[in-house]
């Protein structure tokens, strides 16, 4: 049941697709769900918590606990293959592999090998590393000219 709850900002994704749902522990009519925040300041966390409580109460659990797990920190690598397909199907570009190891300073514009989720063109340009939510960058396709959102690698 918990697996059906969706992200309030990207409703095409369930919390499982997003990799936010970490654990479900069921005992009798009590259930404890563990989620992890994507970004420290993500305001969607409260809504996700409320939605989980509502969905599980509807499913008949009298007591629903939602716990937060901070470690290990969420990574965009945890978005499932199904989640990536759903993002693309809804016109968003899925993240590439998250960076690992030492952190380089990137003074040139970020080059990501991504395709326009609408027309498939690889001729796209970054318009902003920060988008309408903490987890997205803004792109524009130079072929079909449509702007689109890219879920960032973290």
């Amino acid at each position: 049941m918990a697996a059906t709850v969706t992200d309030p900002e990207m409703p095409m994704l369930t919390l499982v697709d997003l990799g936010v749902l970490r654990d479900v522990d069921e005992s009798g009519d009590r259930v404890t769900v563990t989620i992890t925040p994507t970004y420290s300041g993500c305001p969607a966390m409260a809504t996700m918590r409320d939605d989980l409580v509502h969905a599980l109460q509807d499913a008949g659990y009298d007591e629903v606990d939602v716990k937060v797990s901070l470690s290990p920190a969420w990574s965009s690598d945890w978005i499932t293959e199904h989640g990536r397909d759903r993002l693309r199907a809804h016109g968003l570009s899925a993240p590439g592999p998250a960076p690992t190891g030492p952190i380089p300073l990137t003074l040139a514009p970020v080059r990501r090998a991504i395709d326009c989720p609408r027309c498939g063109s690889a001729d796209v340009r970054l318009t902003s590393e920060f988008g309408p939510t903490a987890c997205k960058a803004m792109y524009q396709c130079s072929t079909c000219l449509e702007p689109f959102e890219h879920v960032k690698e973290i």
């Binding site: 918590r49 939602v66 716990k67 937060v68």
Partner: peptide
């Protein structure tokens, strides 16, 4: 979401 460290 009283405690951002709920369950930690």
């Amino acid at each position: 979401f009283e405690d951002p460290l709920a369950g930690v």
